[in-house]
Amino acid sequence: MQVVTDREAYTPPAQGSVVTIGAYDGVHLGHQAVLRLVRDLAVARGHAAVCLTFDRHPAEVVRPETAPKLLTTLDQKLELLEATGYVDTTFVLTFDEARRQEPAEEFVSDVLVGRLGASLVVVGADFHFGHRRHGNVKLLEQMGAELGFEVLGLGLVPVEGDPTGEPYSSTRVRALLAQGDVAGAARLLGRPPRPHEVRGTVEVGDGRGRELGFPTANVAVPARICLPADGIYAGTFVAEDGVERPAAISLGRRPTFYEHAEVSLLEAYVLDFDGDLYGQRVKVRFVDRIRAEERFETVEALVEQMGRDVEAARKVLGAERP
């Protein structure tokens, strides 16, 4: 998959492009269904399959006070888009204040037609774009008739097997994570289920985990990234060596030791591992929730529970002792 960040350096394919537009945060199964359709349409027409996405979530610029937490960083999103195998080119557009103020008509003529050579544009039926959200599917159809491209407005993809008919959406994934239902979120993110992954840097902590017999990697995750609800989880940990290792994960404010902690701390106890992880860029993947965070009356009671948590994580992950 070709990734384009410099719009001036990109030459649109001569045969034309089937273009889909969106934030594509999480690249969940609904997104994947749209991308598969884009690929099928592109192949049938002999055109390129192009995904137009943004360097940040547009809401971070348009309404920063209510912008959603991100399921994926830009790097993760690009990796996931490539992994689908459906996209020839992903065009990453800078979404800044100038972009927010851009008239919808200018976006169509300059970007979709002038830069991407769109022959067919595939978007959600409720898609809006341009200054004050003036652009919509109707405007695309009107301009397409003038500029020579077609438009396909799609409804949201319903979750397979869900009797409520609720569709796949990044919002729904975030809601499940907020409930601590990381297994449910994984079922929306991929097939087979793809655990929610966050990335960060291992920092030096207060050493309390080592004192208790469970040395943990303290992972600093950017504030804009979506984390699950506080609790104890079974998951995996990937250090810079690329090896995925089983882990018991604690996310919370450590109420046994601190009465008021401002932010939750992400700690991973990597099973059967003894090595230096400080400073490494790592990945933490949440497989299933073990329990909610609790306050214990004594440190001894906490340590006993931590031992049970590790055994529960082993059972969930099928990680036998070496």
Score class of each variant (00 low, 15 high):
80 L>W: 15
249 I>R: 01
99 R>I: 00
319 A>N: 08
40 D>G: 04
222 P>H: 06
111 V>H: 02
82 E>C: 03
131 H>W: 14
8 E>D: 14
8 E>P: 00
219 V>I: 15
147 L>Q: 13
220 A>W: 01
292 A>G: 12
69 K>H: 09
245 R>F: 03
84 T>C: 01
33 A>D: 11
273 F>Y: 11
321 R>T: 06
270 V>G: 11
278 Y>H: 12
263 V>F: 04
287 V>E: 13
44 A>G: 05
307 G>C: 03
32 Q>A: 11
42 A>R: 04
312 A>G: 04
295 R>M: 01
251 L>T: 14
224 R>S: 09
46 G>P: 06
82 E>H: 15
134 H>C: 13
181 D>P: 04
192 P>N: 01
129 F>T: 14
149 F>K: 07
191 R>T: 08
83 A>L: 02
120 L>C: 06
1 M>I: 11
53 T>Y: 10
123 V>S: 01
194 R>M: 08
285 R>C: 13
125 A>R: 15
172 R>S: 00
223 A>S: 05
258 Y>I: 09
272 D>R: 12
2 Q>V: 11
218 N>M: 12
302 L>N: 12
34 V>N: 00
60 E>R: 14
313 A>F: 02
80 L>D: 10
258 Y>M: 05
160 E>R: 09
291 R>T: 11
59 A>K: 10
296 F>Y: 10
59 A>H: 04
172 R>W: 01
311 E>V: 03
91 F>M: 08
139 L>Y: 06
247 A>D: 03
51 C>Q: 03
222 P>W: 05
306 M>N: 08
267 E>T: 10
201 T>Q: 15
246 P>S: 14
100 R>M: 12
315 K>H: 07
153 G>V: 03
235 G>T: 13
10 Y>R: 01
58 P>R: 06
23 A>K: 08
211 E>Q: 14
311 E>F: 00
101 Q>E: 15
151 V>M: 00
20 T>N: 05
45 R>P: 01
275 G>P: 04
85 G>P: 05
244 E>I: 00
315 K>T: 13
32 Q>K: 11
144 G>N: 06
151 V>G: 00
306 M>H: 05
85 G>Q: 10
252 G>T: 06
92 V>Y: 05
38 V>H: 00
255 P>R: 11
190 G>N: 02
35 L>Q: 09
276 D>E: 15
199 R>N: 13
259 E>V: 02
118 A>P: 01
48 A>H: 08
132 R>P: 08
252 G>Q: 12
148 G>C: 05
114 G>Y: 07
71 L>N: 13
21 I>S: 05
129 F>H: 12
18 V>K: 02
286 F>D: 03
272 D>P: 04
111 V>P: 00
19 V>M: 10
231 G>C: 13
14 A>T: 11
217 A>R: 00
239 A>C: 02
283 K>G: 13
287 V>F: 02
111 V>T: 09
274 D>V: 07
306 M>V: 10
